[in-house]
Amino acid sequence: MANKVLFVGHDANRAGAQLVLLHWIKAEAARGDKPYLLLARGGVLLKTYQKYAQVWVWEKGPSQFAKWVKKIPLLKREERINREPSIAEIKRLIARLQREKFDLILGNTVASLGLMQQLRPLNASFEAYIHELDFSLKMYASKEDMAFLRNDCRRVYAVSAQVQQVLQETYSVPLGNLAILPPIVELPKQQQDRGQEQRKALGIPANAPVVFGCGLAEWRKGTDIFVRVAKQLIAKHADLHMVWVGVGNEPFSADLKAEKANWDTENRLHLVPTQADPKPYFDMADLFFLSSREDPFPLVMLEAGYAATPIIGFKGAGGVNDFLAAHPELLVEYTDEAHAANKIEMVLAWPLAERKALGLKLKEKALGYSATNFIQRFSELNEQ
């Protein structure tokens, strides 16, 4: 990377955009370029970021007074782990960043735009890498943030064609400032197939067809759609199992578990908590159902492709349209659950050799999202 860049992220939680940023920073560090990162908040990936980059965190931990107050028994108080920095703390951090003489400030996600605007005193150019579609853009960015993106960022990278379209048509980001930059993914190096072990762990017969979905259970990911499609398919196919990895303890997941309890008497819908290592679940799947209503470019889709697994997704849902551009037969009408169930049945009924041939094509496609290709694409865009 020619310029001295300060990356800006909104937090260090384990989610798609944050993982893309981590892979990018690791790739830059491997090339000998020292990465610099400013995070609005910390998270579980913070220590991992710190292995590869100089990291600053905008929000601060509780003050000494807050720590002292917390020790007072029975005293009512607001439970807050972090706090906004004081004016003096902001001045010190800005002065520290100014000494680095950054040429470029590159924000990762629209949720970083608010923090980026605090960095105007650095007198650096601004760019942004956007991973969100309209629902998330409205949720995580203010009108001021989008005006900053439109007027102050010299280049805006969109993770998929649909993201670029939304930014141009809905938020009036100039087309000349936009470029598509597909994500970077770190695919598993381990080639061991642990699918049969995982089937045994879930009580799934070795030869039973398995449809898999993965992601934090929420409306955007369409986990409720996955459950309703599972109900349709399980009622028709005595041996079919469907597995979702990513349920939690929040109300949305509780509703899904309650719905499953109403009809899944044979326990053939498996709602599994988030896993640190989900690869065995990809290994055991015969088909990956990407049920997302809105998913700019899901990394789980690339992991499914790398596992040579056929993928079914919704037209107009985001990056799945880019990834499956050469296989339109795998896309179904947007959120049409009956169409999705029929398509899943159709693909599972294909001869095994045909499914394997398709899977190998998807694996080859997934391998194209390597660190080397990502850095080359980013460099080419910067040279234009």
Results as ranks from 00 to 15, higher is better:
90 I>G: 02
91 K>L: 11
91 K>V: 06
91 K>D: 14
91 K>W: 06
92 R>Y: 02
93 L>M: 12
94 I>L: 09
94 I>E: 09
94 I>H: 01
95 A>R: 05
96 R>D: 03
96 R>G: 00
96 R>I: 08
97 L>N: 01
97 L>P: 00
98 Q>V: 11
99 R>T: 10
99 R>V: 12
100 E>P: 01
101 K>Q: 15
101 K>L: 12
101 K>W: 08
102 F>C: 01
103 D>C: 09
103 D>R: 07
103 D>W: 06
104 L>F: 06
104 L>I: 10
105 I>H: 01
106 L>I: 13
106 L>Y: 02
106 L>W: 01
107 G>W: 04
107 G>K: 05
109 T>I: 09
109 T>A: 07
109 T>Y: 04
110 V>Y: 04
111 A>Q: 01
111 A>C: 05
112 S>Q: 00
113 L>K: 07
114 G>N: 06
114 G>K: 05
114 G>R: 06
114 G>F: 06
115 L>M: 03
115 L>A: 08
115 L>G: 06
116 M>C: 07
116 M>P: 00
116 M>G: 04
116 M>A: 13
117 Q>S: 14
118 Q>E: 03
118 Q>P: 00
119 L>D: 10
119 L>T: 09
120 R>I: 05
121 P>C: 04
121 P>L: 09
121 P>I: 03
122 L>G: 05
122 L>F: 09
123 N>E: 05
123 N>C: 04
124 A>T: 08
124 A>S: 13
124 A>R: 08
124 A>W: 07
124 A>E: 09
125 S>E: 11
125 S>C: 09
126 F>P: 08
128 A>G: 02
128 A>T: 08
129 Y>N: 14
129 Y>L: 14
130 I>G: 06
130 I>S: 08
131 H>Y: 15
131 H>A: 07
132 E>I: 13
132 E>M: 11
133 L>Q: 15
133 L>C: 13
133 L>H: 15
134 D>P: 03
134 D>I: 04
135 F>L: 15
136 S>R: 11
136 S>N: 12
137 L>C: 15
137 L>D: 13
137 L>P: 10
137 L>H: 12
137 L>G: 13
138 K>L: 14
138 K>S: 05
139 M>Q: 08
140 Y>L: 04
142 S>D: 03
142 S>M: 04
143 K>Q: 10
143 K>A: 13
144 E>N: 11
144 E>C: 12
144 E>L: 15
144 E>F: 14
144 E>T: 15
145 D>E: 14
145 D>F: 14
146 M>E: 09
146 M>R: 15
147 A>E: 07
147 A>P: 06
147 A>L: 07
148 F>V: 05
148 F>Q: 00
148 F>D: 01
148 F>W: 00
150 R>I: 06
151 N>G: 04
151 N>F: 12
152 D>F: 06
152 D>Y: 02
153 C>H: 01
153 C>T: 00
153 C>K: 01
